[in-house]
């Protein structure tokens, strides 16, 4: 028995079925060295964060009274007991950075997931409802975008009060408009295509159309935006922590660590240098990944 499909496929008359989205993402990673490097860095840091209690040489809040402001191990006066030195009350900086990864990555993930979910919901509603609902949602998003992101976050924290959760909530609200706009734009493009009409004619209800027909085809730009959103979430959370409006001490959050190190900048460069370096590395890794994914997934840029 012959397989007519395979034959037609070989002749190029019908195309092979598109690969599963996960396969496509994996291929994107293989295509781009930068994205792959970013992924590896993030996985390593995520592992360190997950097993922070075993990986970190010291508990993050433990104060060693014999070691205030000790320099890193390779500097004169440093000790291998504290590889990256200690802060002003004798806490091990390396351990605090490792535990800080846990704070940053988990809060960042929470922010991106919630902003993405709310954004998809609002974006799909705007695209499907059109009319007044659409105008209302999109105008609201415009207003939210009129304020510079950090200022918007600061206003929200000023209302709610400074804490890590409130800062995370503020960053979710700041990121929301991007996801809503992107989802709406992608959904509108898809809605004009024949397969959606076919599905509608076949009797698919609006919910099925929204979630099963249209949404999967809108995912590529959303995945890219979510990756880049992760990096800006971590940056904004650290900035808020630095300004005293995010995580409060003694939480080992990178931005908060920096702000409490400020007064020692002249005497102890290491308390300022390493937490910031940690932020830079994580943000850079997410941006590398986002850039690589965009080149590979975004059909508009596919050349």
């Amino acid at each position: 028995m012959i397989e007519p499909d395979a034959e037609l496929e070989a002749e190029g008359l019908i195309s092979a079925p598109p690969p599963h989205p996960l396969v496509e993402i994996w291929n994107a990673f293989r295509e781009s060295r930068g994205a792959f490097a970013g992924l590896v860095i993030i996985l390593l840091i995520a592992l360190a964060a997950l097993f922070a209690d075993t990986v970190a040489p010291h508990p993050p809040a433990e104060q060693y009274r014999d070691a205030f402001l000790l320099p890193p191990a390779w500097v004169e006066g440093g000790s291998t007991r504290f590889l990256l030195g200690t802060d002003d009350i004798g806490r091990d900086i390396l351990s605090r950075i490792i535990h800080g990864a846990r704070v940053s990555l988990s809060t960042g993930a929470m922010v991106v997931v919630l902003a993405l979910m709310a954004g998809i919901l609002l974006g799909l509603i705007a695209a499907f409802a059109r009319g007044l609902v659409d105008i209302f949602i999109m105008r609201l998003m415009d207003i939210m975008l009129a304020l510079p992101s950090l200022l918007m976050a600061i206003v929200i924290v000023a209302i709610l009060g400074p804490s890590l959760i409130n800062a995370a909530l503020a960053v979710i609200i700041v990121q929301l408009p991007h996801f809503v706009r992107l989802t709406r734009a992608a959904a509108l493009t898809e809605l004009g295509k024949d397969y959606v009409t076919a599905s509608r004619v076949a009797g698919a209800g609006p919910l099925r159309l929204m979630w099963l027909t249209v949404l999967p085809n809108c995912m590529a730009p959303l995945i890219v935006q979510a990756t880049l959103g992760f990096s800006s979430a971590i940056l904004d959370l650290a900035a808020l922590g630095f300004l005293g409006m995010g995580a409060q001490p003694p939480t080992p959050e990178w931005g908060t660590m920096l702000s409490s190190a400020l007064q020692f900048i002249q005497r102890a460069w290491w308390v300022v240098t390493f937490p910031g370096l940690a932020i830079l590395i994580v943000v850079l890794a997410f941006n590398l990944m986002g850039d690589g994914l965009r080149d590979a997934l975004d059909p508009r840029l596919k050349r």
Binding site: L258, G276, L280, V283, N287
Partner: peptide, 18 residues
Amino acid sequence: SLVGYSMPIFWWALLLIL
């Protein structure tokens, strides 16, 4: 430029001062 784009500028400012 990718590094610059990812820079936490509050830290970058501190490094410059330092």
